[in-house]
Amino acid sequence: MEKQARAAAYRQAAEALPARLRREALALPPEEQSRAEELRLRAGRPMTALIEGRELPLGELPVEVGELEQLLEIASHASVHAVLPQLRRGYLTIAGGHRVGLCGTAVLREGEIHALSPLSSADIRVARQVKGACAPVLDRLCPGGVLRDTLILSPPGLGKTTLLRDLIRAVSEGEGCLPRRVALADERGEVAALYGGVPQLEVGRRTDVMEGCPKAAGLMLLLRAMNPQVLAADEITAPEDVQALAQAAGCGVTLLATAHARGREDLGRRGLYRELLDRGLFQNLVTIRRTEGGRAYEVEELR
């Protein structure tokens, strides 16, 4: 069943492709469709599917620049103007939460990327939600059924965002804990993947999402506007983010956030994150580590 859902997500992502490339993508056997993570298009080269770290060519004919432009047209519904802010941050989200990354020759205006023309490569990342990812840690993060202030740590690519999304979903739905109103500052649109105002990845029925806004400003706006019980943000990276979290903590809101670090020691070595620890903003620290069988979660109580 899960394989079918994964293959269906692949086919949905392939809908952004122009007709010829879509045919090539859909010719991939269903078993491999379910394992494909990305579709990669490079001008002058055949399209490939990224499957478990290896690129598998999907046809013999090379991708043309015109087809990359058509991909952008399909993905944006012929509305490049509406997705320019997304393009400037490197990718745009399409129906289903799949991400289309683009690169090419940058056209600059006032020192900022204004457009990409001509396009040279594109990458469609298939969005797949891991429901239940938070199950191994939920009990310890919600003693008595109430979520405590939690910071999730891991190096890139180990599933911080996946765990955060699933925790938000569980808390918002009241799965394994008391249901809470969650407000999510999703600056890069990676957690909820809003498309047309609707989250494409499940973040729960009691979750309000603010996308595309700098985290600190988004957190403060959510705090004022949405009266949240839980305030969530992905990847704390700036002193303003820490300030905003501290201010929110003072308002009695439960905090849920992620940060790039290998563990508590690593966190303590960096000035920005040390402040998070010194201020005692978080009660629980979840560290994700890679193991031979996959990944392991370690929960540490800070106070």
Partner: peptide, 10 residues
Amino acid sequence: GLSRLDQEDF
């Protein structure tokens, strides 16, 4: 026609 952009560009 925007729903058939894979067949005809805008």
